[in-house]
Nucleic acid binder design. Structure first.
Length: 853
RNA sequence: GCGGACGUGGCGAAACGGUAGACGCAGCAGACUUAAAAUCUGCUCCGGGUUUCCCGGGUGCGGGUUCGAGUCCCGCCGUCCGCACCA
């Protein structure tokens, strides 16, 4: 029996697609377009099967939309700047550019072997000056527009990567890549003013109706809008004032202390003359607020000895503390504490024996006896002990207190955001240089546009830790562009998320001398279907939304949202294995012995661990090359689409890929060894076929409808199931049926066309084998004949008292009365009715008859 | 702690409120083979019975709505993910 020769076939069709430039596209104003994009990869080395699931999905969508007649843009490129290249340079004594280039060559070849329909003429790598020169210009435009700025601030310092991280890159107090506990450092850094768009980025989320709800919620929380008030407290007997932010201005009469962040300017100033306070602050910064959150929730404070004047009652004073749980980065860096109605304040007050004065009375509680115990009362209630607020609800009291603050000039209602500005400075070599010069006389001077790009020096050393740009003997020394005196280049480079924030625009006109051509961007954007991992929910996806708006503000384009549709795919998982000594083992290093035990090469027992996301560190990876060598690209592609819903994790198993390989061969035999002779391609199908042939036609057209719907809704696993049902129907088709050849040819051709987006090589070869001279990739998506797809007979379930008692085969759309009569006539039904008349009969057309006895 | 998602056979999973388990994996039995692989046929939720069929139970647990609930509502339990001293 002939096996399908994927090696020859896949190479053949890849050559034909390439030679005919089938997947290169150009903007065609007026023609409907479809921009499909998968999050571009970081060129880290070799691909494993887990890497290609989302590219397979993207390719499926691209080929499907192309068959539907859309002008499809489906590009690929490389997110090529980043720290792993530097680490490799250190470990392997190579250069980041060489290492990156080598990886790109390897991974490009791997993607090409998968037969993905990319327009390779648009390939980009972000580490090339032809790419990053444009973002240097963007940076300068942001600077001019006030969207980029430099400030000294407390930043997240990763002690392993020796660089600053953005808030979005700190996960549970640790660096997102290194896993090192992040420290706080006060540094002068470049920031992008993403907070200027906080409201817009939040409001526009509701319009992203083709985004997963989960991602929108994550962004909503990340942006974190809180309505409240800014309240000004005068420090008693001093000039200073302390501003706090609160969402509970209604509870101001319950205030029993003010707390400053250790990094609050007033706290810093007081520490200059108070060594104990200075030591307390130093300790807070040493531990770091985020680590403290992980280790212990203990609240610690230090009384400054100052008192603040209550804004509503000048005769009242509240002590001013410095407290470790107050963040300088949120609100104003200072709070007022109302222990009765805030759990955190309560814990602090209990520890330092500060008064707990309730001002919100729970419904039905007795004002004379109500007291707060272990838990602060945070629900709604009626204000009391609160002067002019007495008797109001929490909501009304918030309004009244806010109005009074505004009238007194001691505050105002305002909104606080959790979102902070995006810190983009990185103290690393392998990134885009920030195009500014520091001049002793002129300060910060932008590099003039005519001098762009500022390129990275090639001759750098990674022998010592720290930033090679800073150590380079000559690179940073330049004349000030403004005054000509000796000055120094900025040696920080941009966060690599800067590159990925606009690459989708560059793809629209990848070879343009400008960043992108306005007309092509206007045609192709927004991306119709974006596909990638959920790990970028508040990183890349938020930055890109901001960046698109910032570019619009600077006149580059006219667009707010870059990604109209988003799909976040699940991960590919594999069982993990460990040797007796605890070392991780690759799947190919283990086997099952005669007794069914899992053993290693030497026959020693292996510990099987949980199934986890494929990762090099746990060695539970399956190399892409090995799979393509053994089974071919199409088998891998189909398997990746078939076993789990695309948004859920997929477990890769050897038996699973083998099962798919068997199916591929079954498909091949359908055309290689057809059961009966088929009429020539293009023969019209005669009317009035035998029932069996009509049944196959019905199955065929039903499959078109089902698969089309499945692909539209990203239900690829169901699409595969429907295709397998059709191939089962074709295999079981009785060949001796009159007119069989016509129905069989239609079934096979339809199957092949529907398979095209998933298994493009096999389908193309089958199409040719069926006698077609054209290339399947250019054949339109099949259209279903709804009349042919409709059943003439339907099977209706019959329930008595909610239990299934029988089924009824009856003409489709039969009269309700006739269905009821037929159902009641069923012997199983009369047995359960026991001679009685039914109390009620419900007929759902073509579905069910429900009889109540 | 807050927010979200998800709990269905031995496994991956299907099921507009309408016949639970489609499609596949694994397993079992058989055919073809000297044999193996490949291929093909049949069986496979659990319990019971008078066994071409019938009865009962079954979608994490407990309630509810409905002629009818895996699906909707309320309350639990569990798993995973995100955020986490955000004032």
């Amino acid at each position: 029996m002939a096996r399908y020769n994927f090696r020859e076939t896949e190479a053949k069709w890849q050559r034909i697609w390439h030679e005919r430039r089938l997947f290169e596209s150009a903007a065609e104003p007026g023609r409907p377009k479809y921009y499909v994009l998968e999050m571009f990869p970081y060129p880290s080395g070799k691909l494993h099967v887990g890497h290609v699931r989302n590219y397979t999905m993207g390719d499926l969508v691209a080929r499907y939309r192309r068959a539907q007649g859309f002008n499809v843009l489906h590009p690929m490129g490389w997110d090529a700047f980043g720290l792993p290249a530097e680490n490799a340079a250190i470990a392997e004594h190579t250069h980041p550019a060489l290492w990156t280039g080598e990886n790109i060559r390897t991974m490009r070849a791997q993607l090409q072997r998968m037969g993905f329909a990319y327009d390779w003429s648009r390939e980009i790598a972000t580490c090339h000056p032809e790419y990053y020169r444009h973002e240097q210009k963007m940076f300068l435009d942001f600077l001019a527009a006030g969207l980029a700025y430099r400030k000294e601030s407390w930043v997240n310092w990763d002690p392993v990567e020796n660089t600053v991280l953005a808030n979005e890159q700190v996960i549970e107090g640790r660096g997102w890549r290194s896993g090192a506990i992040v420290e706080k450092r006060l540094l002068a850094q470049w920031f992008l003013r993403i907070t200027a768009y906080a409201e817009e980025l939040l409001d526009a989320l509701s319009g992203l109706d083709r985004w997963p709800e989960r991602v929108r919620l994550m962004q909503e929380h990340w942006i974190g809008r809180s309505e409240g008030a800014r309240v000004v407290f005068q420090v008693a007997g001093r000039e200073e004032r302390i501003e706090v932010f609160t969402t509970r201005q209604d509870t101001l009469f319950g205030a029993s202390f003010l707390a400053l962040s250790p990094n609050h300017p007033l706290a810093q100033r007081l520490a200059e003359t108070d060594p104990t306070l200075a030591e307390f602050i130093a300790e807070c910064n040493r531990i770091g607020t985020s680590e403290a959150a992980i280790e212990t929730a203990e609240k610690r404070g230090y009384p400054t000895g100052l008192d603040a004047v209550h804004p509503f009652d000048p005769s009242r004073r509240v002590p001013v503390w410095v407290a470790n749980f107050v963040l300088m980065e949120y609100g104003t860096g200072a709070i007022f504490g109302c222990p009765a109605h805030d759990q955190r304040d309560l814990e602090f007050a209990r520890k330092y024996r500060l008064p707990v004065l309730p001002v919100v009375l729970p419904p039905g509680a007795d004002p004379a006896s109500f007291a707060v115990g272990e838990d602060a009362y945070i629900e709604d209630g009626t204000l009391y002990n609160s002067d002019f607020l007495d008797g109001l609800s929490v909501t009304s009291a918030k309004r009244a207190a806010g109005e009074r603050l505004e009238a007194l000039g001691r505050g105002e209602r305002t909104i606080a955001w959790r979102l902070r500005d995006w810190g983009v400075s990185r103290q690393r070599y392998w990134g885009c240089p920030i195009p500014v010069v520091h001049c002793g006389a002129c300060g910060i001077v932008p590099v003039p546009e005519r001098d762009l790009p500022v390129t990275l020096p090639q001759d750098v050393s990674f022998a010592e830790p720290g930033n090679p740009l800073d150590r380079h003997p000559s690179w940073k020394h330049v004349a000030c562009p403004a005054c000509g005196r000796p000055a120094q280049r900025e040696t920080d480079t941009l966060d690599t998320f800067f590159e990925s924030s606009w690459y989708f625009l560059r793809f629209c006109s990848a070879r343009s001398a400008e960043a992108f051509e306005r007309a092509t961007v206007d045609y192709w954007m927004p991306v119709d279907q974006y596909i990638g991992g959920v790990e970028h929910a508040v990183l890349h996806l938020l930055y890109s939304r901001f960046f698109t708006r910032a570019l619009t503000r600077c006149g580059y384009l006219d667009l707010a949202e870059p990604f109209a549709g988003l799909f976040t795919q699940g991960m590919v998982c594999h069982q993990t294995y460990q040797s007796g000594t605890g070392d991780w083992l690759f799947p190919e290093e283990v086997a099952t012995d005669a007794e069914g035990r899992i053993v290693d090469d030497a026959g020693r027992p292996v510990v099987t661990g949980r199934t986890e996301k494929m990762s090099k560190s746990k060695k539970n990876v399956v190399g892409l090359d090995a799979i393509v060598d053994t089974y071919g690209a199409d088998t891998a592609r189909l398997y990746l689409m078939s076993d789990s819903p695309p948004e859920r994790d997929l477990e890769w198993t050897e038996t699973g890929i083998e099962g798919t390989w068997r199916y591929v061969n079954r498909l091949w035999r359908l055309v290689d060894e057809p059961a009966i002779a088929l009429p020539p391609a293009g023969t019209a199908i005669p009317a009035g076929l035998a029932p069996a042939a009509a049944a196959l036609r019905r199955a065929t057209h039903k499959t078109i409808l089902a698969v089309t719907e499945d692909l539209d809704q990203f239900r690829f696993n169901r699409a595969v199931a429907h295709l397998r049902e059709l191939s089962n129907a074709i295999e079981e088709f009785p060949a001796e049926t009159p007119g069989a050849g016509h129905a069989l040819r239609e079934g096979l051709e339809t199957l092949v066309r529907l398979l095209g987006p998933m298994m493009p090589h096999l389908a193309a070869e089958m199409w040719q084998r069926l006698g077609h001279g054209d290339v399947l990739a250019l054949v339109p998506w099949p259209e279903a004949d709804r009349d042919l797809a409709r059943d003439t007979l339907v099977t209706i379930a019959v329930q008595v008292n909610g239990k299934l008692r029988g089924t009824l085969d009856i003409e489709r759309d039969a009269e309700k009365g006739a269905v009821e009569t037929a159902a009641l006539a069923l012997p199983q039904v009369s047995r359960w009715l026991d001679g009685n008349k039914p109390r009620k009969v419900i007929v759902v057309p073509n579905r069910i008859v429900s009889i109540v006895a």
